[in-house]
């Protein structure tokens, strides 16, 4: 058991790194997507909607193959880590864009009107009025998505990223004791998601305090 744990634990770094990097990529790229999605201009709205729809419709495993084998080998050389981060990160961008959009839409219409009536420029309206309020709405679903992403990062093993799952598969193929290996893998994923949930709850509480009272 200790041997299995030590083998799998070697993959924790990759799992955490892929999850974190893909989430950051998604969190950053999702923002312009969300704004485009809400744009009054069709030329911005339509492509954003199309990109989001495509990324959400393709199974992550297929999408990773497309990114890694398609773009990765034909256009630029990607490492398995880069391929996993870009692939999962773009999917995250699509989902987070929708979460952002819902968060922005949740801000009361009166807030936009007050900002307009005060002649607040668009940028200040977003930065100072809308986004701080949207943030509280966005945090819980974004945290849920981060935990989902941690689990989905296991898919990165199919393109050879040496994460927990990759090592579990290798160990199983070598020594044929799949149940205990994957049980340990499962426990490791649980152990990793608990702190994410804790951080999310903490952030949520701080933000709620800031807005309400």
């Amino acid at each position: 058991m200790a041997r299995i744990l030590s083998i799998l634990a070697a993959g924790i770094g990759q799992t955490v790194a892929i999850t974190a990097a893909a989430f950051v990529l998604g969190a950053v790229a999702g923002f312009p997507l969300a704004l485009m999605r809400r744009s009054p201009y069709r030329v911005l709205r339509m492509p954003a909607a199309a990109v989001i729809e495509i990324l959400r419709s393709i199974p992550p495993i297929v999408w990773l193959f497309i990114v890694y084998y398609g773009i990765g080998s034909d256009v630029v050389k990607l490492s398995t880590f880069q391929g996993a981060v870009i692939g999962l990160g773009l999917i995250a961008a699509a989902y987070l864009a929708e979460i952002y959009r819902a968060g922005i839409d949740a801000v009361a219409r009166g807030q936009w009107e007050a900002a307009k009536a005060l002649a607040l420029p668009r940028r200040a309206t977003y930065q100072r009025v809308i986004l701080p309020q949207a943030l509280t709405v966005v945090t819980p679903p974004a945290a849920t998505y981060a935990i989902g992403l941690l689990k989905d990062s296991a898919i990165a093993s199919v393109i050879g990223a040496t994460d927990i799952t990759f090592r579990a598969v290798q160990e199983t193929q070598a020594n044929l004791h799949g149940l205990s290996v994957f049980a340990v893998a499962g426990l490791l994923y649980i152990a990793l998601s608990v702190p994410i949930a804790a951080v999310a709850r903490y952030t949520d509480r701080i933000l709620a305090q800031k807005v309400a009272k």
């Binding site: 009166g110 009107e113 002649a119 100072r128 701080p132 309020q133 309400a212």
Partner: peptide, 18 residues
């Protein structure tokens, strides 16, 4: 530019809660 010269008070205040 126009709105800067016209103040508005709403039924539901619309203060910025944060």
């Amino acid at each position: 530019e126009h709105r800067r010269e016209v103040g508005m008070v709403f039924q539901n205040f619309n203060l910025f809660p944060h």
